[in-house]
Computed example of a mutant assay.
Amino acid sequence: MKRLPTYIISLLLLISNKAISQNINDLKDINSQIWSNFSKAFETVDYQLFESLHSNDLVRVNGGDYKSIRNKEAYLEGYKERWKNSSLKQTISFRFFERIYKDGLASERGIYKFTINPGEKNQKSYYGKFHVILRKEEGHWKILVDYDSIENESINEASYNNCFALNDFENIK
């Protein structure tokens, strides 16, 4: 009879560890399928890779001073035109203050750092706050809603550094 409570506790620990492990695996998938590829697309000026990260149902919103709302075609047309110049030198990276995910949906909020001419004398970095909604489509994560704003230029290096890193799974609550 004493074995039953021990068995139940062991089973609950095993199930909770499996759930946590699954969540970390989901985040690792999001990191590799979305964020790593997003950064790579910017660095290599790869329009096809960038386009592949977005759902056909994409809604793109710019807040703050640059208010706009567009569908996938209208949003990506700007990148297609800009990235014709394959000699662009740019990087983008992301840090997070909130990551929520469940059942093939995710909400991720944080700060991005966009740098032109990285490592050069004329290097310049820009910062903004983002919020994306991701959806798993046919086994792959896609950006369904993408919102960002420079928040009246109040976002800076300190804001960026105050968020947690891409692979910092300890700070996810």
Rank of each mutant, 00 (worst) to 15 (best):
K2I: 11
I9V: 06
L11W: 13
L12T: 10
L12I: 04
L12N: 11
L14D: 15
I15Y: 11
K18W: 06
A19D: 10
N25R: 07
L27Y: 12
K28H: 13
K28M: 04
D29Q: 14
D29P: 01
I30H: 05
I30D: 03
N31F: 02
N31D: 11
I34Y: 01
I34M: 04
W35F: 15
N37L: 09
K40P: 00
K40M: 12
V45M: 15
D46C: 03
E51S: 08
S52Y: 08
S52N: 09
D57S: 10
D57N: 07
V59P: 00
V59G: 07
R60C: 08
R60L: 03
N62I: 01
D65V: 03
D65C: 06
S68C: 15
R70M: 15
N71L: 08
N71H: 07
Y75A: 09
Y75T: 08
G78L: 04
S87F: 05
L88G: 10
R95C: 06
R95P: 00
R99T: 04
Y101G: 13
G104W: 05
S107T: 06
R109F: 00
G110Y: 01
K113Y: 13
F114M: 08
I116H: 07
N117W: 02
Q123K: 10
Y127D: 08
V132S: 07
L134P: 00
R135L: 05
K136L: 05
K136S: 12
K142G: 05
I143L: 13
L144A: 11
D148Y: 07
N152K: 06
E153T: 06
I155H: 04
N156Y: 08
Y160C: 05
N161P: 00
N162R: 04
L166W: 02
L166C: 13
